[in-house]
Nucleic acid binder design. Structure first.
Lengths: 231, 231
DNA sequence: AGCAAAGGGTAAAGATTGAGTAAATTTACT
DNA sequence: AGTAAATTTACTCAATCTTTACCCTTTGCT
């Protein structure tokens, strides 16, 4: 696994320094913010693997940041606090934190908890990616990278396969062009990039001979949806 | 969400009883095992959403169970222990536990931690899509960008969809033209801009064939309201 | 009531944007 | 080098968004 990107939000610069050194030596890449506002800004603009969030901060405190991020942020959050207060812990977890560690903490335990969270994320995001998907006569098997339509094989290129896979994983849910570009082509979507359109076009063509009904619906200005079609 | 299935592995029957009662009252479905071997057996044969695992048990202890389950079990594990020993916690987390709570614990905190883990799993397996909105026979699904009126599809353009979405989210609440312009068209409202009026007009027209009653009410000089209509 | 002014409804025209795709080019792999 | 795949180019066309224009309704004033 490539170095996980962590975001540390803590007003204690000295402690941050120490922690930064420790975690960097453990192979993480760490960004530090010393107040809630810049921390929140960072969290919203950059995609981190995990956020370490101190509760006690002047201005925007940890709970405020948690609230501002909303309940469904994708990035896991580990809260740090000087208080050992239990109701505090409960509140943090209810607001959307994933774990809670009281200061002063053992760096080893912090490390272990960070790893535990990242491992869970890793397991869960890889799990779905290996199970075959069957929808409406189309079967896609990630393990063998084969796709069949009504049991007959459909020969897709690697990118076409991944694109179809991502769409089928998100059945009846829009997958934006940005998402397709980032997840499949591994680069941000650029203006006037017609590459995705091309691949979609090719996928559609390869399926045409088997079935006339269009499974991949275009959502103009947004992306594409793989439709289950049972309406 | 349907009731999460939990597995409790703890040799302390009395405590298990209490915990079982508490968690059941919180809407979980709980299975108890009183030793490591049966616990391991259960964990392997049935698909639980979360395992609560006591460390101190005669025979196979919590760590042994953890090891036996292997590093990449899909089910998250929360360990419970009488010891507050840090190295113990670190060991547990390294062996694949997702969280660690020392006895005696506050039931509220346990509950919060259980929920935090389940929420993380939920987010990562992305079952938490943006929820469809249903009002008065009209259903709007943000995920697939589809709108139906009395189960029949209504074909809206992107802007029309977003405008209706914003109005339906603010049921019975006025949405100003300024708001509509900024949120949907991404620009400040200008004098003599009739664009919003046009879109509203088009939305109304597309719904006319299904129902005569007007859902979108005009508030002269201010904006529009989507009416729940039950008065 | 009468009137003027402002705001909204909407058809139609015009402008703009985004998608489809053939073909050419580049890239990546053998 | 040879080949398959991916990307870019270039062009068309269709969807859809905006503007215009005209009419109707409401509001507020005398």
């Amino acid at each position: 696994m490539t170095a996980a990107k962590l975001l540390l939000i803590d007003d204690d610069q000295e402690l941050s320094e120490l922690l930064s050194e420790f975690l960097t030596s453990e192979g993480f890449s760490l960004t530090c913010c010393f107040d809630g506002i810049t921390g929140l800004e960072q969290a919203k603009t950059t995609d981190y693997d995990l956020i370490l969030l101190d509760v006690m901060m002047p201005g925007l405190n940890g709970f405020d940041v948690l609230k501002a991020l909303g309940g469904k942020h994708l990035t896991p959050i580990l809260m740090l606090t000087a208080k050992g207060d239990e109701s505090d812990r409960v509140l943090g977890l209810e607001l959307g934190a994933d774990d809670y560690l009281a200061k002063p903490y053992n760096p080893k335990e912090l490390l272990a908890r960070i790893k535990a969270i990242l491992r869970r994320v890793d397991i869960l995001t890889n799990k779905t990616k290996s199970q075959p998907i069957q929808i409406n006569g189309i079967e896609l098997s990630p393990a063998s990278r084969e796709v069949t339509c009504l049991t007959k094989p459909v020969l897709l290129t690697g990118t076409e396969f991944e694109m179809l896979h991502l769409l089928m994983e998100n059945l009846d849910t829009i997958v934006s062009k940005e998402m397709l570009s980032e997840q499949v082509l591994n680069r941000p979507l650029m203006a006037f990039d017609r590459s995705i359109d091309m691949h979609i076009s090719n996928i559609r063509r390869k399926f045409q001979q088997f079935s006339s009904e269009e499974k991949i619906k275009t959502i103009r200005g947004v992306g594409y949806v793989f439709m289950s079609g049972d309406k």
